[in-house]
Computed example of a mutant assay.
Amino acid sequence: MKQPIIDAHIHLDMYSEESRREIMQDLERYHIDGLISVSNHTASAQMNLKLARQDKRIKPAVGFHPEQELPDDHQLERIFKLIDEHKEEMVAIGEVGLPYYSRKKDPSLSLTPYIEMLERFIRLAVKLDKPIILHAIYEDANIACDLLEKHSVRKVHFHWFKSSPAMIRRLIENRYSISVTPDCLYEAEIQQLIEQYPLELMMVETDGPWPFEGEFKNERTHPKMIHESITKISEIKSLPLDEVYKQLYQNTVDFF
């Protein structure tokens, strides 16, 4: 049984033109109603905005991915200018956050300028009344939550979230949304998160073209994989599959 789904977090601009064309051709076949396509930087955002004009099922978000070298002042201002010029076309600020994996590779990397940049994006999300899509996991989620609470942000999406039980409780108390990738089929940590997190605060995503293991090993990441994720969520939650489909779909529509 397959019902309509929305991929709540995909980097559509990072696929090859051929792969994008195949994915878009597949959407109806696999009951995929929409793609929230997040941006990594200015060029990425410009491509996502262009793709969204070509197909209304693509919903662009504009931001700066934190797992890369910081933009200089000119580059950052270009991103903020782009957001201001296209605020009516975009559905969210994102992907933004903190460089957890970069700091694991280089512990000397200063977090301060990334925190300052994230706060600027948070303030802009509040000003424009847009949802914000976050890359902030483990201990970084605590810093992000401090900033979100400081600015009273309500529509918050922690994509592919991973953290401590205490941090999970904090997100739930704040009514922040999370999204689950196809790694829920084989990662015990994500399965435990699904068990704990309220279904009404959950979405599903691929983070494509990021590749997966398990049954998806060596397979190009495709939004159709979300159907397997939903089946797993239904199993973990001990809820009817039909109910889980409908709730996750409505969560995503309401959020964006």
Rank of each mutant, 00 (worst) to 15 (best):
Y197D: 08
F212G: 08
E116N: 15
V126M: 04
A92M: 02
L239N: 05
R20M: 13
I36S: 06
A144L: 08
W210L: 14
L82N: 00
H31I: 04
E85W: 05
E95D: 04
E189M: 09
D13G: 07
M117C: 03
E88K: 15
A43P: 00
P71G: 05
Q3A: 13
P209S: 13
H135F: 05
H227L: 11
I190M: 14
L124T: 10
L27P: 12
I23N: 03
S102W: 03
H151V: 06
S177P: 01
D55F: 01
Q192M: 10
K81G: 11
I58Y: 01
H157C: 06
H11T: 12
A125H: 11
N48L: 10
L201Q: 15
M90N: 00
F121V: 07
K81V: 00
E85Y: 08
E28A: 15
K150D: 08
E28C: 03
E205D: 12
I172W: 07
C145M: 15
E187P: 00
I36F: 09
E235G: 02
L171Y: 03
D207V: 07
V96R: 01
R123M: 06
K217P: 00
Q191S: 08
R123C: 08
Y138G: 03
P182Q: 11
L241W: 07
D7P: 13
S152Y: 09
A45R: 06
S229E: 10
L239W: 06
S16Y: 05
P131N: 09
H65V: 05
D7N: 11
E18P: 04
P198Y: 09
H86F: 09
M202H: 06
D7S: 06
H151D: 05
E85P: 00
Q196S: 12
I143Y: 04
H86C: 10
F64V: 13
Y176P: 08
G63K: 06
I230S: 09
K130W: 05
I115R: 15
F216M: 05
P107G: 14
M14F: 11
Q75P: 09
S164N: 15
V180W: 01
Q192S: 12
A141G: 14
F161A: 10
Y15W: 10
R29H: 13
K127M: 00
L241K: 12
E95C: 04
H31W: 08
P209K: 07
K162N: 01
V153F: 03
N174D: 08
E187R: 12
L118T: 07
D72S: 12
I172P: 07
L70Q: 10
L199P: 01
Q25K: 12
Q196M: 04
L148I: 15
I10Q: 05
K50H: 13
